[in-house]
């Protein structure tokens, strides 16, 4: 197997006085969906934010596509081809759906120049966006906002998508749709997906890593984990207990 697209080695991250990541080792291969599982506060979101340089690692190395990006500023990391869908979705609610996507399309100078074919492809997943094209994004429902956030990340081809808990708070029907969307998306680009919802990702993921206490406590193929109920119980049941 070739060198992974993204490689975290012994990454520590501090936020203020809190030591959140305590030596994360994580490989994201060049294809498929890598799922990052773990309970609340395990450090999943911090891992994504550290990759993107929104918080910087205090120790360790983040390598992306052969380059050390540990201390690079966020805009440079994003320009190198990493797209991000934060947990809060980060929608610009004042701007229309169209303007939200336009800003995400870095190479495009004016709203009219956006790649129609690509947009149609996106509307194929998220039909609602076409309908609400000129609505302020703030007026959309939660599920529709999530579509805007994901559409923004794929409006131009990127090398890697970081997606943080896309199913959080969404209705089951929408989640089903999202599974379909991601399974098509992963054919064209690798995705690092943070989730707590195991049933959602077990059907979707190719590789999996489980976090606890700021470390990766398990990594392997999703198929293995999906079959091994004992292991599931040990890794995720344990976290359920801790969660309560």
């Amino acid at each position: 197997m070739s060198e992974p697209l993204l490689k975290l080695k012994g990454v520590h991250t501090h936020i203020g006085q809190y030591h959140i990541l305590q030596g994360v080792d994580l490989d994201v291969p060049r294809t498929g969906i890598t799922v990052l599982l773990g309970r609340n506060g395990a450090g999943k979101t911090t891992t994504l934010r550290t990759i993107l340089g929104l918080w910087h690692a205090s120790k360790g190395i983040v390598r992306y596509d052969g380059k050390d990006i540990t201390q690079s500023p966020t805009p440079d990391i994003a320009s190198a081809g990493i797209a991000y869908v934060p947990e809060s979705m980060g929608i610009f609610s004042d701007l229309t759906v169209r303007e939200n996507l336009f800003l995400a399309a870095r190479s495009v100078k004016s709203v009219g120049e956006m790649d129609e074919k690509r947009l149609e492809w996106i509307f194929g997943f998220f039909g609602a966006l076409k309908k609400f094209w000129n609505q302020p994004a703030g007026t959309l429902s939660g599920g529709q906002k999530q579509m805007v956030a994901i559409a923004r990340a794929i409006v131009e081809p990127r090398k890697l998508l970081l997606i943080d808990e896309p199913t959080k708070g969404l209705a089951p029907a929408i989640i089903q749709g999202m599974i379909a969307a991601f399974s098509e998306l992963k054919e064209t680009q690798p995705i690092l997906l943070v989730e707590q919802n195991f049933s959602f990702v077990s059907a979707l993921g190719d590789t999996v890593a489980v976090m606890d206490g700021g470390r990766i406590v398990h990594s392997g193929s999703m198929a293995e984990l999906a079959e091994d109920t004992d292991l599931q119980h040990q890794l995720l049941g344990l976290s359920l207990d801790a969660h309560q």
């Binding site: 929104l54 991000y84 980060g90 610009f92 800003l103």
Partner: peptide
């Protein structure tokens, strides 16, 4: 305008 609302996301868009 986007930056007024969420500067971090503007950075994350590159």
């Amino acid at each position: 305008r986007a930056g007024v609302e969420n500067g971090e996301m503007v950075e994350a868009l590159g």
